[in-house]
Design a protein around this nucleic acid. Structure first.
Length: 887
DNA sequence: ACCGTCACG
DNA sequence: ACGTACGTGACGGTC
């Protein structure tokens, strides 16, 4: 066996540190407890681990820049001029990166007057001469000039777990140039980040074209007389000196006077203790866990005394009315409507009682503790617990603290549904996550040993208890106690009941549709394959792209990261160019209905009661809306007639009952009129005018509503939507197919006519900048860490979010309040009608025929008066045999 | 696990 | 100059 060639890894320390810094610049405060920024160190370490694992090098060196002045600044004083200073948040991290490298057993090196590039170029040369495989890691594409048969340049990507490897062939494929021509390209095109100019008016494209013909800059000038007269030729002649200077600047030295050799780059063994103390100083908990186990470090959590309950012990439980009780019901799976029970645990004052047999919960005093309001309970995820217990015939009551819900209200950005993770976010670390304890994916397993299982469960209830006081204090501080107690906690119960009731699905109707669609899909597929001239998978955007844009040569309208876009918008523009396009559009529409709404829905209908029992996620969205999963009943088709028919499969659960829908008309715009206190907009709503027509009249300067053509109304409607989303001229122009200039004109006129709205938009952004968050009318918060970010995109996004979230979030608050009130009224009036679904601005009920008239009055008045705004709320009602007919 | 696509408000 | 509308979930394909 021949000896494997050795690998030399050369890392551009400054470049990778920069990449690392910006990769995690915007994830809130990434600092250790003494305020030192650690994001670049963190990502640097990740990248380092990645490449060490990937290339397993025998020799490693990390090169750094020595200082601002080098031999290049001597040749060209403006070299790298105009570059923003390294942010202090980054420079403070460099000493730690070097310390870390030392502990890794890796050599760092810098050389007066030279850049890291030159150190790397020189060592790469040495490595090659000694037959090493050389790997250069950097974030800087200029180094691709060093690629050879033996040397690969790996460029770190944005995501920092990915790297892109450049071999000479890859360089050629990417730039159309050989590696050593990169410097010629730079000489011609210049480099704005290194601040050298190149030849006037020549950019990368032109440079590449020239180099394809003449190979090098020198080659160009040797042949310059042959070139046709042109502006470009003049520029080339004029800038000859600059071009050659720039090429020289771009050239990485391969003969820097290094004071070390290959022998100095041999990797030494890592210093575990050094790493440990460094990671401790940096608060890198997850990295500490990875270090080789250190007996003194692996302190287990305190063992809690759990009594495993049996039926004969129940009468001796030390429980009083004022006991502090925490309860946790463990189920094996997300879907609590049918997940198997694992067991339960009570923390009653300082005692822990648990059992696997959940039937014990039906016995006294356990059932009484769970259902009697006199006992106050603390839990994690009340809704989940309620639905689980309901399967045992137990209607839980008396919940005071729900860790999941409270935590979501305090900060909805990083809210996990795992006790361990969530506790960790609040700096409580005496509980494992479920993934750590049970394992994840295929490895997930419930331990058979009681001691193990209940040890985990006991730490869960302790975590809930331990965080209670602190989180309640935070709620009070934020003035969110009412939001929690009067809105979200009562809502959890309302949602639980809706989920349990479920909605009846006519599976026969769905099955009939399935057969019909199956035939039509087969026909369409046949036609498409005929037109394409070959079999392919038309569900694959990749294969479809190949057929449309390569085989059939249709024009490419838009590209995605991975290839050609084949989205609806693109296909619509291709219509008429080939009959295949229409067929694909039809196929797509039907396939979506078939897979998601017919087959998908049939899979989740419960056999026992022919119902779909969705789960509402109450602690997920950034704005305060609900979401619906398994199945998602908030996105059942309605816009296209074909899809709308799916709604025929949703029916009332009793003969003689009807599906009843009540939706808020224009709730978001009404909320805006209220929050912004815009008189013109308020007046329009008070007079119950057609709001989009009203906007059309204002922005197009029409005197009479009769002058509002459907097209003007459509445009005005888009403007109204744009306003709600935090408008940009570009977004609006794209949406209604006008120029950006026209869109800007619309927006300016809108703000002139609705000055209150304009003022609101400015004020809310300012408020977000000052306090770091925005809030709804019910004081729900959304934090916007990017609002002062230097990155234009991230900042702009945060600004639009600042404008939109109070609107969308307040609308969510309002319908939640209406749901609680409605639930209350139905019980108070002893009506049989039941709330089934919520779709953001709409509530769906099933109502017995004889209650219809009373019900309509009730729901309208309840929803109208859910909150008191400075504009009226308007509710539109409809009912019919199926959801489809409730229109 | 991620992407592209598409369903809803 | 930058490159975007706000908020979601499910599917099939692909890595």
């Amino acid at each position: 066996m021949t000896k494997k060639e050795k690998t030399l890894l050369l890392v551009d320390g400054n470049s990778v540190a920069f990449r690392a810094f910006f990769a995690l610049q915007n994830v809130g405060s990434f600092t250790n407890r003494s305020g030192l920024h650690t994001n670049a160190i963190y990502v640097f370490k990740k990248i380092l681990d990645n490449i060490l694992k990937k290339y397993a090098p025998e020799n490693v060196l990390v090169a750094f820049d020595a200082g601002k002045t080098t031999f290049r600044t001597e040749k060209f004083s403006d070299y790298k001029g105009g570059r923003a200073r390294t942010p202090g948040e980054l420079s403070e991290q460099f000493p730690y990166i070097r310390k870390m490298l030392e502990a890794y057993g890796i050599k760092s090196y810098e050389l007066e007057n030279y850049e890291a590039d030159d150190i790397i170029g020189t060592l790469a040369q040495t490595g090659e001469s000694k037959n090493y495989r050389v790997i250069i890691v950097t974030g800087d594409r200029d180094l691709t000039q060093l690629t050879t048969a033996q040397t690969t340049v790996a460029i770190t990507q944005k995501g920092f777990s990915e790297i892109e490897e450049y071999t000479p062939a890859h360089v050629e494929e990417k730039y159309g140039l050989k590696p050593d021509q990169i410097i010629d390209m730079k000489g011609l095109a210049g480099d704005s980040s290194d601040n050298y100019p190149g030849v006037t008016k020549i950019g990368e494209k032109t440079a590449i074209k020239l180099l394809k013909q003449y190979q090098t800059i020198e080659g160009i000038y040797e042949n310059i007389d042959e070139m046709k007269k042109s502006k470009m030729k003049e520029h080339l002649i004029e800038d000859r000196k600059t071009a050659l200077l720039c090429k020289d600047l771009a050239t990485i030295k391969k003969n820097a006077p290094l004071t070390l050799g290959l022998a100095d780059t041999i990797r030494k063994e890592a210093d575990q203790d050094g790493l440990r103390s460094l990671f401790e100083e940096l608060d890198f908990k997850s990295f500490l866990d990875e270090l080789s186990p250190n007996a003194s470090q692996q302190v287990d959590f305190e063992k809690l005394p759990v009594t495993i309950l049996t039926a004969d012990q129940l009468d001796k439980l030390p429980v009083k009315k004022n006991s502090e009780i925490t309860f946790y019901l463990e189920m094996d799976g997300k879907n609590y409507h049918n997940a198997p029970f694992v067991g339960f645990i009570f923390k009653i004052d300082d005692h822990y009682f648990g059992a696997r047999d959940v039937a014990l919960l039906k016995e006294q005093p356990l059932q009484k503790i769970l259902t009697d309001q006199e006992y106050q309970l603390d839990v994690f995820d009340f809704k989940r617990t309620y639905v689980g217990l309901n399967r045992l015939g137990i209607q839980m009551a008396g919940v005071r603290f729900d860790l999941l819900l409270v935590s979501y209200l305090l900060n909805n950005t990083e809210n996990s549904d795992d006790v361990g993770e969530l506790a960790g976010e609040h700096h409580y670390d005496q509980v494992k996550t479920d993934a750590e304890f049970y394992g994840k994916g295929a490895k997930r397993q419930i331990p058979e040993d009681d001691g193990q299982l209940f040890d985990h469960l006991s730490h869960k209830v302790l975590a809930i208890h331990a965080l209670k006081e602190q989180l309640f204090d935070e709620l009070k501080e934020n003035q969110q106690l009412d939001l929690y107690q009067d809105l979200e906690l009562p809502l959890a119960l309302v949602l639980a009941k809706m989920e349990i009731v479920g909605i009846t699905v006519d599976t026969q109707r769905l099955e009939a549709m399935r057969s019909e669609f199956k035939e039509r899909l087969a026909e369409l597929e046949q036609e498409i394959v005929n037109e394409a001239g070959e079999e392919f998978n038309l569900n694959s955007p990749k294969q479809l792209g190949h057929i449309l844009f390569e085989k059939l040569q249709l024009p490419v309208i838009k590209k995605t990261k991975t290839g050609y876009s084949t989205a609806v918008g693109v296909l619509e523009q291709l219509r008429g160019m080939s009959p295949i396009v229409d067929n694909i559009l039809n196929y797509r529409q039907l396939a979506k209905l078939q897979s998601t709404y017919i087959e998908g829905l049939l899979k989740v209908v419960f056999k026992e009661d022919h119902k779909a029992h969705t789960r509402y996620t109450q602690t997920l969205t950034a704005t305060g809306r609900l979401s619906s999963v398994d199945p998602n009943l908030q996105n059942i088709p309605i816009r296209l007639e074909e899809g709308r028919k799916i709604r025929q499969a949703f029916t009332a659960s009793h003969p003689g009952w009807e599906i009843f829908s009540a939706d808020y008309s224009q709730i978001e715009l009404r909320v805006l009129a209220h929050i912004a206190q815009d008189e013109h907009m308020q007046e329009a709503f008070k007079a119950d005018r057609d709001i989009h027509a009203n906007t059309a009249m204002e922005i197009f300067g029409l005197a009479d509503e009769k002058d509002v053509t459907p097209n003007l109304r459509r445009q005005a409607k888009a403007v109204n939507f744009g306003i709600v989303y935090g408008i940009s001229d570009y977004g609006l122009s794209q949406n209604i197919g006008i120029t950006r200039k026209q869109a800007k004109q619309f927006i300016d006129t809108y703000f002139e006519k609705f000055p209150g709205v304009k003022q609101y938009m400015e004020q809310i952004v300012k408020k977000a900048q000052e306090q770091g968050y925005v809030e709804t009318v019910f004081k729900r918060r959304r934090y916007l860490p990017d609002i002062n970010n230097k990155n234009f995109n991230l900042r702009s996004f945060a600004e639009r979010t600042a404008m939109n979230s109070p609107i969308q979030g307040s609308a969510a608050d309002i319908i939640k309040a209406a749901m609680i009130k409605m639930d209350h009224e139905l019980r108070a009036k002893k009506m049989q009608a039941r709330m089934l679904l919520q779709v953001h601005d709409e509530l769906i009920f099933e109502v017995p025929h004889e209650e219809l008239a009373d019900f309509e009055k009730l729901v309208s008045s309840v929803m109208d008066s859910a909150v008191d705004l400075s504009v009226p709320l308007k509710v539109e009602c409809a009912h019919g045999k199926t959801w489809f007919d409730a229109k």
